Amino acid sequence: MNWLLVVAGAVVGAPLRYLTDRAIQSRHDSVFPWGTFAVNVTGCLILGLLTGAAAAGAAGSHLQLLLGTGLCGALTTYSTFSYETLRLAGTGARFYAAANVTASLVAGLGAAFAGVALAQVVWA
């Protein structure tokens, strides 16, 4: 039964990732992968919030499977992040490749910590 929760979350997360990526990227005339960056940081925020909620006893294992594993697993994309970074470096846009790695790490970790902190405020 747990796998159904993961599938249900992924059914929402995968198209949400694709549509969000396309919508954001179409608004930017830049080689920087803003769409992938946005979905990955958003996923980190959601996972941080969910982790904080679980630590406070406000989110159970079923919600973690649905939102954490299913939704965020399909929403975020390490493979696309890696591919886009390598593509940037390979086409000579090394500054953008380095910026993508640095910004993704800093913003992703910051979003996760912010999610945990927000959860502590809400459910403490």
Rank of each mutant, 00 (worst) to 15 (best):
W123C: 10
R22E: 10
L45W: 13
L88K: 11
L109A: 09
C44V: 05
V116F: 04
A53Q: 13
V39K: 03
G68P: 01
V7N: 04
L50G: 09
A56T: 04
A23E: 14
D29Y: 01
R17Q: 10
E84Q: 15
V101H: 06
T85W: 00
G43C: 06
A59T: 02
A23H: 14
A112N: 08
G13A: 12
A14K: 05
T77A: 09
A114D: 03
V31F: 07
I46K: 04
T102M: 11
G60W: 08
G92N: 12
I24T: 08
L86I: 05
L86N: 08
W3L: 14
R27A: 10
F113D: 00
A58M: 07
R22L: 13
A54D: 08
V121T: 13
V12A: 15
V12T: 03
A114R: 02
F95H: 10
Q25E: 14
G68K: 03
T102Y: 02
G110N: 06
L19C: 05
G70F: 02
V116S: 03
N2A: 14
A119G: 05
M1N: 12
I24L: 09
A117K: 04
A55P: 03
R87S: 15
L49P: 05
L65V: 02
G57R: 07
T91E: 15
